[in-house]
Design a binder for these strands. Structure first.
Lengths: 146, 146
DNA sequence: CCACAACGTGAAGCATCTTCACGGTTGGTA
DNA sequence: TACCAACCGTGAAGATGCTTCACGTTGTGG
């Protein structure tokens, strides 16, 4: 097995483990990955109409409707009417939604710290750069085929 | 942002890109990730009853039924009766299934090569080790909470 | 021979996600 | 100013992946 394949294997394993880890954490606060993603966008970009959310999440507007339905049902967000355009409604985090979102950010920070502690301090930054380079390449590969 | 968070960000980005890349490649040959996973198990472990597949895929036997239904419908596998146990049927790759599976293996090898070429040759092996260490840690974290 | 275990699947349900169609709104243009 | 095309959100229908529960069929140890 070449080093490249070993690398790919390791990345795939990390991917799986990370995904599992995040999903269980999300489930603990009552969120699914897709809904958490939407909450994340609300945190970083503020209250928005569903169209804008659909663009940022790269899914269809119809799908956003369903995600917001669930988040609204569970009390994480509300749909506020937009006075300037009665077609659109603004999706806004509730207090509880903001709480949970803050928890997610904290969890992410903590996980970053735990990962950094696995390796010698000096190597973490370089590793981040290398992994970023890999990500760039893969994005390039996928984009080039577009 | 700490190095740990930068690393986590890079890994998450790589994860997303890699997943997209693989999904499009899979779709091109008529497979979904879950069905490809099942095909992969058949390649490495040979023809098996659905129970064994369920164990290796870490999903419920009921789910395997659906995956095999689809793969059988599309001509990638067949269900052969097992003479020694009439309850079970053995899931086996068809010629076409084996072809497609070989293609997947080749694609994986190629992707590994492409990733290796992104970085200086000397660093790939070390990177693979580091990423593997991260994967170990994340698996440990998830396992510890079990 | 019989109770219990194992194999696969029907039924029902949840989460993502898609496409298509439609109804209400806006906004710019004839 | 009337009008129509573009736009917002959502109903309907469907594909995929997963789960649990219930069942019928088959194997097997006592």
């Amino acid at each position: 097995m070449t080093d490249g394949e070993r690398l790919l294997d390791a990345v795939l394993r990390l991917t799986t483990a990370l995904q599992r880890d995040m999903e269980t954490g999300l489930a603990a606060v009552g969120l699914t990955p897709a809904r958490a993603h939407l909450v994340g966008v609300l945190v970083t970009s503020g209250p928005q109409p569903q169209q804008a959310l659909a663009r940022q999440l790269e899914v269809t507007p119809r799908n956003v409707t369903g995600l917001v339905d669930a988040l609204e049902r569970d009390g994480f967000v509300t749909r506020e009417p937009q006075p300037t355009d009665r077609r659109a409604s603004i999706v806004t985090l509730t207090a509880r939604g903001r709480e949970v979102a803050d928890g997610l950010v904290a969890g992410r920070r903590e996980l970053g710290g735990q990962l950094a502690r696995v390796l010698p301090a000096g190597r973490v930054a370089a590793l981040a750069d290398d992994v970023a380079a890999l990500a760039d390449e893969v994005e390039r590969l996928a984009g080039g085929a577009r």
